[in-house]
């Protein structure tokens, strides 16, 4: 059996295609000359969106779009998406399957791998083809301390890729491609029902451009206001280390780190954060890191471009004062 081409799973359960899907189409285009075959995008959609999605996916690089048209209430059912992806793999026989490593993608893709009987690597930061023509997947493990290069011996190679590591290609709405509709059975999917959206996220740190992040250096809940004001003044999102979430001072969606959000802003300002490995795992890829800590030996210094030894209250107040003077 000949496994060729690349299949990109386009995530769209929320009603729009997740931008990571476009990033993967861009990456797949780049890999394709070394893998050969065509670039497929696979998506599960309601009837009224099918045409719009295929146009979009072709514009971003897909040669063929395979669409599974389902009823509205099945759009958010992960088991339906599992069924679709399994069907698509059996039908297309791609060499490589790329899935966004969002919580959604990381929940569905392993089921697909288990069912097909193939290997899967998680949350990759890169995918390349080596000199012998093998696909190699690069991923962090051990809470971000280790980087591993992984090969898959079976077909297809399934990889989930961390959102934001590859560029979104510029779309070309003049590109020609083909759209194909397939149907799937809802078999087994009734064991799970998505009842409703319980809570929409008020903040998506993974998309933030500038972040002010506070840690246990903050002494009381009341004091958070000062840092909130600082974040607001410079147009940053406010984030935090885990203890502040554990104490109930901050929402979980604002936590940075291994058990929180992985962020990659242009500027990360860490205030009163010591730099535990689990925190570093969430922010080490920030472009520029400023940290403020009274302890000159705090581990976060090593991960900072600018390390200010000082009191966070003092520094925050002085910056706010300076910003006011500028106005």
């Amino acid at each position: 059996m000949n496994w060729r081409g690349v299949l990109v799973y386009a995530e769209n359960y929320s009603g729009r295609i997740h931008r990571a899907s476009f990033e993967l189409l861009g990456k797949a285009r780049e890999l394709l000359p070394r893998i050969s075959g065509e670039l497929f995008a696979v998506t599960v959609t309601s009837e009224n969106k099918a045409e719009e999605y295929s146009r979009e996916l072709i514009a971003y690089g897909a040669d063929k779009v395979v669409e599974y048209v389902v009823e509205e209430n099945h759009l958010t059912n992960p088991l339906i998406h599992r069924n679709a992806l399994i069907d698509a793999i059996k039908y297309i026989k791609p060499k490589l399957v790329l899935v966004p490593a969002t919580p959604w993608g990381r929940s569905i893709a392993p089921r697909v791998a288990a069912s097909i009987g193939t290997g899967i690597t998680a949350d990759c930061l890169d995918v390349y083809v080596d000199d012998e023509g093998n696909i190699v997947q690069v991923r962090p493990a051990f809470t971000g301390n280790i980087i591993a290069h992984i090969k898959t011996l079976t077909n297809p190679v399934i990889t989930t890729v961390r959102p934001g590591v590859f560029q979104v290609p510029s779309p070309d709405y003049g590109r020609k491609g083909e759209a194909l509709i397939r149907s799937i059975e809802a078999s087994g999917a009734d064991k799970l029902r998505v009842l409703r959206v319980a809570r929409v996220k008020t903040v998506k740190l993974s998309e933030a451009d500038v972040i002010v992040s506070i840690g246990k250096g903050v002494r009381s809940r009341e004091d958070i206001k000062l840092f909130e004001e600082l974040a607001r003044e410079i147009g940053a999102q406010l984030a935090c280390s885990k203890p502040l979430v554990d104490m109930g001072w901050m929402e979980r969606d604002r936590q940075v780190g291994f058990s929180g959000n992985i962020v990659k802003p242009r500027l990360y300002i860490a205030l009163g954060i010591s730099g535990a490995p689990q925190h570093i795992a969430g922010m080490r890829d920030s472009k520029y890191v400023v940290s403020v800590n009274i302890d000159p030996s705090a581990p976060i210094a090593k991960y900072s471009d600018l390390f200010v030894v000082g009191d966070i209250y003092d520094v925050a107040k002085k910056i706010l004062q300076a910003l006011r003077n500028l106005k």
């Binding site: 971000g144 992984i150 011996l153 300002i269 471009d305 200010v308 000082g310």
Partner: peptide, 30 residues
């Protein structure tokens, strides 16, 4: 079906940390 073929410690991105204190720190941040 998978094999770890290579593993190494994640690099510290080679940041050249500038360490500053007090008032100078505020100016540097600005």
């Amino acid at each position: 079906p998978t094999r770890v073929v290579r593993a190494y410690y994640a690099l510290e991105k080679g940041r050249e940390t500038r360490v500053v204190k007090g008032e100078e720190g505020v100016n540097m941040i600005l």
